[in-house]
């Protein structure tokens, strides 16, 4: 389990996170939603250990995060950034292969290359393998990054300890089909390889469709956390997002909800 306990983050007089407690279990998808400035990205940074906390602690697989060395962390936790600017031309395959870095012993093995290829195939980007990364469109780049990140925790199923996938707005640049494809892949990883997934999402419906639990944040605090039925209640949407909405059952998937905004 990857858990943040009573975490507070302050910077330059402002409180970015105020006593936030959250946990994600292996095999489940936790969606994090909220308006701009809610602290979603900061929360993700806290879970990665990238930012100094004023209070609280983060524990991963039972140990405090700061007890983990950078290399140990990298073997069980992969982070997909919102955007990656690559200054130099690099073949797409090499970018994906970089995901295997924490597991390398010296040079990349044949197995590492096979994993990178598989990951690219999974995100439907293997036809881009020889292309120059800087010549790709935003959506294509996002998919390649996803492949890299998946390659990093590819062996989650065989690993002795649970792995985690942190996604920062993974669907931002993707077209509709790929948005769903990406989240489907994340869901499969969660189910089949017992990976704990934390995904920051802007689209409430994507959260409703794919997340097992949703944390709604506003102004540095967790407003509510729970399964979509509770987290995406009409009152919550109105209070947090200032939008009048109706929450209905998905016509074809009765176990899932849809959030439809009123005018």
């Amino acid at each position: 389990m990857l858990a943040a306990g009573q975490v507070s983050v302050r910077a330059g007089g402002a409180t970015l996170l105020d006593e936030v407690s959250l946990a994600v279990r292996p095999g489940e998808i936790l969606g994090v939603v909220g308006p701009n400035g809610a602290g979603k990205s900061t929360l993700l940074k806290v879970l990665c250990g990238d930012v100094a906390m004023a209070a609280g602690e983060v524990r991963m697989n039972g140990r405090p995060l700061h007890n983990w060395s950078l290399c140990e962390r990298a073997k069980v936790r992969a982070v997909l950034p919102q955007e990656t600017a690559l200054g130099f031309p690099l073949p797409v395959f090499e970018v994906a292969l970089m995901g295997r870095s924490p597991h390398l012993r010296g040079v990349e093995s044949e197995r590492d290359r096979a994993i990178a290829r598989e990951a690219l195939r999974l995100v439907e980007a293997e036809h881009l393998a020889d292309r120059d990364y800087t010549s790709l469109s935003g959506g294509e780049r996002q998919r390649v990054q996803l492949a890299r990140v998946l390659a990093q925790i590819w062996e989650a199923g065989d690993a002795r300890q649970p792995c985690y996938l942190l996604l920062d707005e993974p669907t931002a640049a993707l077209d509709l089909a790929h948005q769903h494809a990406a989240l489907t892949i994340a869901a499969r990883f969660a189910r089949e390889r017992r990976v704990g997934v934390v995904a920051i999402l802007h689209d409430l419906n994507l959260a409703a469709l794919y997340a097992d639990r949703i944390a709604v944040m506003k102004r540095g605090r967790v407003w509510i956390e729970g399964p979509p039925e509770t987290a995406l209640a009409v009152e919550v949407v109105e209070a947090v997002f200032a939008v009048r909405a109706s929450v209905v059952r998905h016509p074809r998937r009765p176990d899932r909800l849809l959030v439809v905004a009123d005018r």
Binding site: D50, L70, R77, V79, P81
Partner: peptide, 10 residues
């Protein structure tokens, strides 16, 4: 890939 991403890779 970036400072943070390199850190995330260990």
């Amino acid at each position: 890939l970036g400072d943070r991403e390199a850190g995330h890779l260990g």
